[in-house]
Every structure is written in structure tokens, then in C-alpha cells.
């Protein structure tokens, strides 16, 4: 009897630098499993962001590029335009994608660039130490919103999936979570479908993944999951926002 659970070939042996209770490791694994299942490790290029996942390239076994803050969609565009045969994905956090890189992601999505974006939304800047993100929840305390996010002052959290789904160009836009196994199963399906659309050269695809940051939220991992379910999921509703079959 063979192994029923093993390390995906697309994942390296490196031990991750992520904090206890962080969900990046789960998401990395889902991406690696999908790439293995699709058999595309040898023609995949990943693009790491600036943020907690800046070192993501250490945890995969295929080619990787490292972007500047927010610019991964432009780099992915460059690769896909000159090498449409490669499978390209960006892996971006909420500060990277929804703040400094908002211009790049909107235009890449609107051009219908045939790459995949894994967008990790944990409502905070992680690597720089817990500052407010565009996705930080109303009233949520961060180091730069010490009295809680004041929406009169800095606006409401940006719903990236809804915002990108409003573009007229066909795309696959979906939001899932990795808080519990029931969510993880759906998240993996969404990631696989996103890559499949890319392989079919069909459309731009983005999977927003609701995630946790126990360290910067100042709670333990279990409390973090509860908080995300209670505070984030009612605002960031899970589901498909757009498929290329729509329109």
C-alpha cells in the first residue's frame, strides 16, 4: 500500500518561517498539490510578493521570481506575454495587492491576462509588524489604527473579489477560506479551477483566501479562527463572484 499522505513534489523540504497558527503553509500546500495534480511543475513560474510570503520561493521546487511590493501582476504579465506556454501565478497579500499594487492587479485583470493570482487576505500587514491594511475590519485595532479602524477617516475595507468581478472582462474570481477543513476543501477546488482556466488559456483567475494572523491580531490560533469566522466571513462572503461562463 502506497502512501496516502505525502509531501507534494512541488513543495521543497525547507522549513517555513511562518508563525505558529499562520495559514500561509496550508495555502502553499494547496497550490503545490494542485500543480502536482495538473502535472505542470516543469512549466510553472511563481512570483513571490513583498510581505510575509516574500520567501515563498524557498518552499516550492519550480522556477520563481521575486517581485517588488505590489508589482507581481505586472511581472506575471511580462512572463505570460513572452511565454504564453508557461503557467504563471502570483502569490500576494492584502497590503501588496490591495494597497500599493491595486493599479497593477486591476489592469492585469482587465486585460484578461492569462495568469492566476492567489490573494491572501488576513486583514493586516504581517511582515512589517501588524499595521492597518486596506482589508482591515471596521474597529479592528492595529499598530497604525490603535483605536480601531475608523471608517469615517479611512473608509471601509476593500472587497477585492467584488471589485475585480465588476470589471467587464471575463474572469474567474472567487473567495474561499482556509480556516477549517470544510473551507480548505473548497479553497483547493477553487485554486485548481483557477489554474485550469489558465491552462485552457481562458481568462484571468483570482482566488481570494480569507486567512488568519494570530501574531498580529494578538490572539491564539484557535481564537484567530473564531474571530475570522465571526468578523470577516459575514463581510467577506465566500463564493464565486465571476466565472468566464457568466457575461
Amino acid at each position: 500500500m502506497g502512501k496516502t499522505f505525502a509531501r507534494p513534489e512541488s513543495m521543497s523540504l525547507a522549513v517555513t518561517h511562518y508563525c505558529p497558527g499562520c495559514t500561509h503553509g496550508i495555502i502553499h500546500r494547496l497550490v503545490a498539490e494542485v500543480i502536482d495534480e495538473l502535472g505542470i511543475c516543469g512549466r510553472t513560474v511563481g512570483i513571490a510578493p513583498v510581505g510575509c510570503a516574500v520567501l515563498a520561493y524557498n518552499y516550492f521546487t519550480f522556477d520563481f521570481q521575486e517581485a517588488a511590493h505590489g508589482r507581481a501582476p505586472a511581472m506575471a504579465t511580462g512572463i505570460k506575454r513572452v511565454r504564453p506556454d508557461l503557467t504563471v501565478f502570483t502569490y500576494q497579500g492584502d497590503g501588496d495587492l490591495a494597497s500599493i499594487g491595486m493599479g497593477e492587479i486591476i489592469h492585469a485583470a482587465n486585460r484578461g491576462e492569462k495568469f492566476t493570482t492567489i490573494f491572501v487576505n488576513n486583514a493586516v500587514y504581517g511582515m512589517t509588524g501588524g499595521q492597518m491594511a486596506p482589508t482591515t475590519m471596521p474597529g479592528q485595532r492595529t499598530t497604525t489604527s490603535p483605536f480601531g479602524r475608523n471608517v469615517d477617516d479611512v473608509g471601509m475595507p476593500i472587497k477585492v473579489a467584488e471589485l475585480l468581478a465588476a470589471l467587464q472582462t471575463p474572469a474567474y474570481i472567487v473567495r474561499q477560506a482556509v480556516l477549517k477543513p470544510k473551507y480548505i476543501v473548497k479553497a483547493k477546488k477553487a485554486i485548481k479551477r483557477a489554474f485550469q482556466y489558465q491552462l485552457d488559456r481562458k481568462c484571468f483567475s483570482l482566488v481570494e483566501i480569507i486567512s488568519t494572523c494570530p501574531t498580529n491580531w494578538g490572539v491564539n490560533p484557535v481564537e484567530a479562527i473564531t474571530w475570522a469566522e465571526e468578523k470577516m466571513l459575514p463581510y467577506y462572503k465566500l463564493g464565486e463572484y465571476k466565472t468566464p461562463e457568466d457575461v
Partner: peptide
């Protein structure tokens, strides 16, 4: 960055 991605 499109240049960077393509060159890389």
C-alpha cells in the same frame, strides 16, 4: 516590471 518579468 513587465520588462523585469519577461527578462527574468
Amino acid at each position: 516590471y513587465m520588462i523585469f518579468g519577461a527578462a527574468a
